[in-house]
Design a protein around this nucleic acid. Structure first.
Length: 429
RNA sequence: GGAGGCGUGGCAGAGUGGUUGAAUGCACCGGUCUUGAAAACCGGCAGGGGUUUGCGCCCCUCGUGAGUUCGAAUCUCACCGCCUCCGCCA
């Protein structure tokens, strides 16, 4: 959520910044609402002040045993008008709020301007894609050969865009997640956190999935007692840990790492990545979340991306790092780095991590603040999140990059201890 | 699922219709004292919003939302959450 003060004082800044994201924002409706609000709020508050003063008089008169009927008659007349004003004002504020809640975050000044993904800027390439002396297989074929990836059975159980893993591949999947958790907790100082996979509406609003992106979510209904939403990323529950909190300055930074499944309806992406487990309704992700003091969030973003990169480096998977341009960023982000891993079968780099600083955008929605240390004002915290990494896609990358001519797959050296010493996953006969 | 209890400021905890946004303690901030620190003492200290060049003035908020009333932390209803006991249960 943007700061309404900014829209009041300098709406052109907002219009321009949103334009760089490819969004046409017409300031007129906001300004009309805002003018009405100002007028109505002033009048309402005047009425409230009068009522309060007169009611106070009644109390004084009665405590002295005097007659209060004249004052009572006067204050009685205020009631109806006041109530009407209060209701109109509440509706108006709600409308303003809804308008505000629908606006995406403003890009940080260091974000390259661009209209779509073609405007993204590569900042780093790490590792050299391996050359193969045989024809590479994609993870679907490899997984089938290993008896470890079974999309047909998953489809029987649930439908398309679900995966079922067995044996060595299932173990590899588990090992990857454990490995990531261990690296981030032991080497990068994150606190492991376990969170609910279903959250309420307020949490989805807090991180920005609602109200605009409901179609991307799975909802779980509980009769007429309301509904939960399956988390599309652990960013949602983990970040919302601080919702509604006023934190002590020394409570920051908070660094969490969580491993959860993620559920996405993938509405509107019917034709894309239909083969294999690149784009699933359910996938696992190890997520890094940081709650930072506003002064530190930008250096924290660089650090966080580095932590995600470290996993790829340890697994010796070639990747590149790009900065998303203004037109390609997510709703809540002020700046985003994507990490893309090399997939030999696709002969290209594919997204495996997305790391963002959301600035105070989510914090304002969540009302998550940090107490000022000295005289200053309490401030909204800054929230950051990044995949460290998407486990399913990491599995795909390992299978494809470490495949051998006979269809077996070597286990990356760094991962062997998490595989109980297994160094190669062999095809089934 | 049944029975009972409880939600007040950063924390603990008073307050059961009237100048109470709220005692007290702790924490925190500033100061006195001290070589420095601690202790002691003095002072400050909820959040959000409106308006104002500023001083300030005003409004809202005691889990959330409705209601009763001239007036609600206090009374009524609904909802949410937490605790205790019983039942069930991975």
């Amino acid at each position: 959520m943007l700061d309404i003060q900014l829209l009041r004082s300098n709406i052109q800044v907002v219009v321009d910044a949103l334009a760089s994201r490819g969004m046409r924002f017409d300031p007129a409706p906001f300004q009309t609402l805002e003018a009405k609000r100002k007028d109505l709020q002033t009048r309402t508050q005047d009425l409230q002040a009068r009522r309060n003063a007169l009611s106070k008089q009644v109390g004084q008169l009665k405590s002295r045993g005097e007659d209060a009927s004249a004052v009572l008659a006067e204050v009685g007349g205020i009631g109806d008008e006041l109530k009407a004003n209060e209701q109109t004002l509440a509706a108006l504020l709600e409308e303003l709020n809804a308008l505000l809640a629908g606006l995406p975050n403003l890009p940080h000044k260091t974000v390259p301007v661009g209209r779509d993904e073609s405007g993204n800027v590569e900042v780093l390439r790490w590792g050299t894609p391996r050359s193969f002396a045989f024809e590479v297989r994609d993870h679907v074929d490899l997984g089938a050969g290993l008896g470890g990836l079974d999309f047909e059975t998953a489809a029987k159980l649930s439908g398309s865009r679900f995966a079922l893993m067995r044996g060595g591949v299932a173990r590899l999947h588990r090992a990857l997640a454990q490995f990531m958790l261990d690296v981030h907790t032991r080497e990068h100082g994150y606190t492991e956190i376990y969170v609910p996979y279903m959250v309420n509406e307020a949490s989805m609003f807090g991180t920005g999935q609602l109200p605009k992106f409901e179609e991307d979510l799975f909802a779980v209904h509980r009769g007429d007692e309301g509904r939960f939403f399956l988390i599309p990323t652990s960013e949602v529950p983990v970040t919302n840990v601080v919702r509604g909190e006023l934190l002590a300055a020394d409570a920051l930074p908070m660094k969490f790492v969580g491993h959860t499944p993620c559920f996405r309806s993938e509405a509107g992406s019917y034709g894309r990545d239909t083969r294999g487990m690149i784009r699933q309704h359910q996938f696992d992700k190890v997520e890094l979340v940081r709650i930072e003091h506003p002064d530190n969030s930008w250096s924290a973003l660089e650090e966080l991306v580095g932590h995600a990169e470290k996993i790829l480096q340890k697994l010796e998977l070639p990747y590149r790092k790009i900065v998303l341009c203004t037109g390609d960023m997510g709703f809540a982000a002020a700046k985003t780095y994507d990490l893309e891993v090399w997939l030999p079968a696709q002969n290209t780099y594919r997204e495996i991590s997305s790391c963002s600083n959301c600035g105070d955008f989510q914090a304002r929605r969540m009302q998550a603040r940090v107490r000022a240390s000295g005289q200053g004002k309490n401030e909204f915290v800054h929230t950051l999140n990044g995949s460290g990494l998407a486990v399913g896609r990491t599995l795909v990358a390992v299978l494809e990059n470490y495949q051998q001519a006979d269809g077996s797959v070597r286990v990356p050296e760094a991962l062997v201890p998490w595989m109980g010493g297994v160094e190669v996953i062999e095809p089934v006969a």
